[in-house]
């Protein structure tokens, strides 16, 4: 393989890893703070992609579509938290797994009612539909750079929120001791709803920005969810930075696996997980706030 295509694959791997990070970050935040394993998290990714497609068509603009989509998913997150998820916080993981699996079936069926079972391509917005000349004979699609930039911006925003803001402080405290925060007079129920809807919208945003590359198709959440599980196992559950490291590792492993052994590319992710399990069964990063 020549150096140019290695570089391209490297960029693709990082971009895919960053995208996975958005989904995995929500998964790990919700687990770290509420202790809930959410199998339906991948569905939010799918919902994001379908929203981007349908809203962009309706509004006539990708950007307006995304803006409306983000608002809708935040509301969706709040509603789901209040109706379903808040009942799960103190329950055994077994029931969390089952209930959220049931939600997947519901989401998939509603998806087929609302949007049908076809694959829908999303058009890359005019502004970003170009290529960047990296070297003399190497170009890279502008849109993929945009995706990486969005993910990096959100990661920085997440970092600042957790480390610097009052909400972040409460989130960190809430992760360690939810009774304590209640004594301090913090409305922990509101915090839970906010954190949950942040998680939902992060996954949905990932689905939206990915949709021009991957299209929107049925069951697209499943593979992302399982990949994110592997990321969380590798990174250490509850740790946002573990999720970032895990996501980049998996993004690269998957991309290069695809290049070298396309038929078995699905395996590279699991091989990586097995190695980490032998070496460090609790993940690369233990929970950052404990």
């Amino acid at each position: 393989m020549e150096i140019n295509s290695i570089l391209i694959q490297l960029l693709n791997g990082i971009q895919y890893g960053l995208l996975l990070f958005l989904v995995a970050a929500g998964l790990t935040l919700v687990f770290g703070i509420m202790g809930v394993i959410n199998l339906a998290h991948g569905s939010f990714y799918m919902i994001g992609a379908y929203l981007a497609w349908s809203l962009a068509e309706l509004a006539g603009s990708f950007w307006v579509g995304i803006a409306i989509g983000i608002v809708l998913t935040i509301i969706l997150g709040m509603v789901l938290e209040v109706v379903f998820f808040k009942h799960l916080y103190r329950r055994d993981h077994l029931y969390q797994v089952l209930m959220t699996y049931g939600l997947i079936l519901i989401f998939e069926d509603l998806r087929s009612v609302l949007w049908g079972n076809d694959i829908h391509g999303v058009v890359i917005p005019e502004l970003l539909n170009s290529s960047i000349q990296l070297t003399e004979n190497l170009t890279y699609p502008m849109y993929r750079f945009f995706v990486s930039a969005v993910c990096i911006a959100i990661a920085i925003g997440l970092y600042l929120t957790i480390q610097r803001t009052r909400l972040g402080m409460i989130i960190r405290a809430g992760a360690t001791n939810s009774e304590m925060t209640q004594v301090l007079g913090v409305n922990i129920k509101l915090i839970h709803a906010v954190v949950f809807s942040i998680g939902v919208s992060l996954a949905a945003i990932a689905g939206m920005v990915a949709s021009p590359i991957s299209s929107a198709y049925p069951n697209m959440g499943t593979q992302v969810l399982i990949t994110c599980f592997v990321i969380v196992v590798i990174g250490g559950i509850g740790s946002v930075w573990g999720a970032l490291a895990g996501a980049l590792l998996i993004g690269l492993a998957d991309t290069f696996g695809n290049v070298f052994a396309p038929e078995y590319s699905g395996l590279s992710v699991f091989i990586l997980m097995s190695i980490i399990l032998i070496w460090r069964p609790e993940g690369l990063f233990k929970r950052s706030y404990k």
Binding site: Y95, M99, Y101, L103
Partner: peptide, 10 residues
Amino acid sequence: MGFFIVAVSL
């Protein structure tokens, strides 16, 4: 089936 599973687990 989805609603059934949600109901049973809750």
